[in-house]
């Protein structure tokens, strides 16, 4: 049966459109790629709670506050689905969290930008979650079973996130001049970072080719980015927001929008840790993780007490 353990057999399973499950044979590169991608995705969900959490106490109405709380609770849940999926590959939650806190593992660099005012909450939901959805819809068909199932669940929940963001932007664009200016300002700051969320161009993407061969990624960075651009520009125009790009145009033949070149220097600067909030995000995570240690200890003590009781009465 050693044929089953060969990389060729693995690749033929992938080519046949089969899903790979945690106990199945997989090349080490496949496992490593998945751990990196899924954990980065999980960390993004969890770190992504911070820029929004910052606005819970300042939400402009009770309705807005309830919505924001529910959305942030979802992000935490998404992080947990994804950590569970990563754990099926043989890495522990402790290691995953250590890698986040030491900086060894990355999270989406978009969360290193601050949410300066309420319009940013709209822009994050509409643009950042919107970009994430395009990526996640594609990942529902990823070849690794546990990751694919987590994505299906997440996609069901994400569309509320994007719609609540677009609703905020719409309301502000129908509001006073000041509110319109705030919405436009948020648009100006979040548009380009959202486009960068899809990662470098296919020609410059170090991990893309294996990921496509193994069907971890079903579409390339540039294909996904184009989908997002084509969906989002008409949504912006509908509510009167201006795209912060002097040279974008619609190619009538292909139906695709063309945009100006992306400033990748900024992208690499933020990834390298020089974004506005990198240090703050990780410090915050460490602080609350450490402050919560007593809860985990208490839970273990409680369990041990009950195990002891069961043994005594048995």
């Amino acid at each position: 049966m050693h044929n089953e353990h060969s990389d060729t057999h693995f690749q033929s399973r992938i080519d046949n459109g089969e899903h790979i499950e945690s106990k199945d044979y997989m090349p080490e590169g496949y496992r490593k790629h998945l751990i990196r991608q899924i954990s980065q995705h999980a960390h993004s969900e969890v770190i992504g709670m911070q820029p929004e959490g910052n606005w819970i106490t300042r939400a402009p109405s009770l309705r807005a506050k309830q919505i924001l709380l529910a959305k942030i609770q979802d992000e935490g849940g998404h992080g947990l689905y994804l950590y569970s999926a990563a754990e099926t590959l043989g890495i522990s939650r402790v290691e995953l969290i250590e890698n986040l806190q030491s900086g060894k593992a990355k999270y989406s660099s978009i969360f290193n930008y601050p949410a300066l005012n309420w319009a940013d909450i709209g822009a994050i939901g509409w643009l950042v979650d919107g970009a994430a959805i395009v990526n996640q819809v594609s990942l529902q068909r990823t070849s690794y079973g546990p990751y694919s199932r987590a994505m299906v669940r997440i996609c069901k929940e994400e569309s509320f996130h994007q719609r609540q963001g677009y609703e905020i932007m719409t309301k502000m664009m129908r509001g006073t001049k000041d509110q319109q200016a705030m919405a436009q300002d948020a648009m100006n700051r979040w548009w380009w970072p959202s486009l960068m969320m899809f990662g470098p161009h296919d020609t410059d993407s170090p991990h893309s080719s294996d990921a496509v061969k193994w069907k971890i990624k079903r579409e390339t960075n540039d294909e996904l980015r184009q989908k997002f651009i084509d969906k989002t520009i008409p949504q912006a125009e509908l509510i009167g927001l201006i795209i912060p790009d002097n040279n974008f145009s619609l190619d009538e033949k292909t139906g695709h929008y063309k945009i100006s070149p992306i400033n990748w220097d900024e992208f690499y600067r933020v990834i390298a840790g020089h974004g506005p909030c990198n240090k703050q995000r990780v410090d915050h995570h460490i602080k609350f993780h450490e402050e919560g240690a007593w809860i985990r200890e208490a839970a273990v003590a409680y369990k041990q007490k009950h195990v002891k009781k069961e043994l005594e009465t048995a």
């Binding site: 689905y81 569970s84 099926t88 939650r93 669940r153 839970a299 273990v300 409680y302 009950h306």
Partner: peptide, 19 residues
């Protein structure tokens, strides 16, 4: 549906419900 972490039965049900 997936997995969760918990220390005992009660916490397991609660976490499964929440997640």
């Amino acid at each position: 549906a997936g997995s969760i972490h918990a220390s005992d039965n009660k916490m397991a049900i609660q976490n499964a419900r929440d997640i």
